[in-house]
Design a binder for these strands. Structure first.
Lengths: 235, 235
DNA sequence: GCGGGCCCGATTGTAGACAATAGGCGGGCC
DNA sequence: GGCCCGCCTATTGTCTACAATCGGGCCCGC
């Protein structure tokens, strides 16, 4: 079985996408080791291509390459996470400012459809729900037509998944769908300032809802308690 | 002569820096071909390392990799340039908002020193002058301590050099030093809004001073006129 | 028993060989 | 004479082999 099929030149890209998806799906959790041979063997390519993919991913901030020690899925600190959301807000602010009052009918429909899909997935498909929530933001960004902006928003949304995977509560992104709808409404109405305010509130609430619960749980005994219970150990 | 000396693991990075510097110095002009063997031979490394560096540079937007056709120094269109500056403004706005009223004495001195260096270079050393102008912005960004923000501002400043190399008038960045000084003053005074406004004006004036002279000169006859004159052709 | 240094396996770092592709050149066909 | 087609070369795409490095375990001296 060759997971990667296509012709020359596309395979490096395929490896990159495969790893990226695996990371974003949390099939590869933050901190996981990424040995070049194992990956290459599993994907049917040589270390060369795996290496290229890892370099790309490290440039995107999804993977950390430690010299002579191998690559791991990035494990951003909570502070890095907060900084990331701060930066993300600055860029998404530009997105809504650019888009306010400028959406074509087709784009509005596309956004409505997307929100519909989010509502459909809500509650019964956690993984899809989270993915769609992120894609709403990348979809908005893509409508600006600003290549640099699109690229950065994509990167930051992807990295946000890592942050939420590490520090987010379960179910924390559930109630965001209505906020997406409000943002769209403000954009349609051309109310730039309101759209910015809504986006601000939206991202802020993600960080406070999901991130702030920083109960400095660095005591390894507490951390291990639930695992111990799951294994029938330690009372 | 081995331009690259250091020990294992650092050489790929060295190649990357060498190429990046060459591009930013315009020793490698936008559009230049970047053949892997020639570069490797010149730098005393194998194509493997050159390739890794090129991949990194392409992720940073300084190099464009066309499948099976080799890499070239990126040649952003004028529209991409404008979008880039729009995005850059959004991020630098965050920089000054973050920094306003927060600068330590040591940081203020560092910025003053830098502006001093800019003034010293003004007029008689064009290349240095341009480089220092960019570094003022990366220096500001670095003081935020926001890793993501720093990284993106660095990238955009670097790419801005490409844009200015392609579309900028000579001497266009000469009068910017005083604007840097004004921004610093606003930051010291903690006047966030004024700092934002100054930064906005500063970047805007770069784009209008240097970029806007977009006299849709797509008629090849016009484009060639000056070259013809320089060669004593075509009257 | 304990600490430190050496050896060894696993993994990364780098090079060079081989395969595949693009684009130019020349020959042949209209 | 011009156009199309198939070789040919230069260059990229990918692999495999070899060298360097890290971390862990073992042995030894204390």
């Amino acid at each position: 079985m060759r997971g990667i099929s296509a012709k020359s030149g596309m395979r490096a890209q395929a490896v990159h996408r495969a790893l990226k998806r695996a990371i974003l799906d949390q099939a590869l959790a933050p901190g996981s080791k990424l040995p070049e041979d194992s990956i290459g063997e599993r994907l049917g390519v040589s270390r060369t291509l795996v290496r290229e993919a890892l370099v790309r991913l490290s440039e995107e901030g999804l993977v950390e390459m430690r010299p002579n020690k191998g690559a791991v899925v990035a494990r951003p600190s909570l502070e890095e996470g907060r900084d990331l959301f701060t930066t993300r807000l600055a860029l998404e602010r530009l997105v809504v400012e650019t888009l306010a009052g400028q959406l074509g009918a087709q784009q509005e429909q596309q956004l409505l459809d997307h929100i519909g899909a989010e509502e459909a997935a809500r509650g019964h498909d956690q993984a899809t729900s989270i993915r769609l929530a992120g894609e709403f933001h990348t979809l908005l960004a893509s409508m600006t037509g600003n290549a640099t902006l699109i690229r950065y928003v994509n990167e930051l949304v992807a990295r946000s998944s890592l942050i939420l995977a590490l520090y987010g509560r379960p179910h924390s992104s559930e109630c965001a769908v209505s906020e997406h709808h409000e943002i769209l409404a403000a954009l349609k109405a051309g109310e730039s300032a309101r759209a910015v305010k809504l986006m601000h509130h939206h991202l802020e609430s993600i960080t406070t809802r999901a991130l702030l619960p920083k109960e400095q749980n660095s005591d390894i005994r507490d951390v291990l308690a639930s695992y111990a219970a799951a294994e029938g150990l330690a009372v």
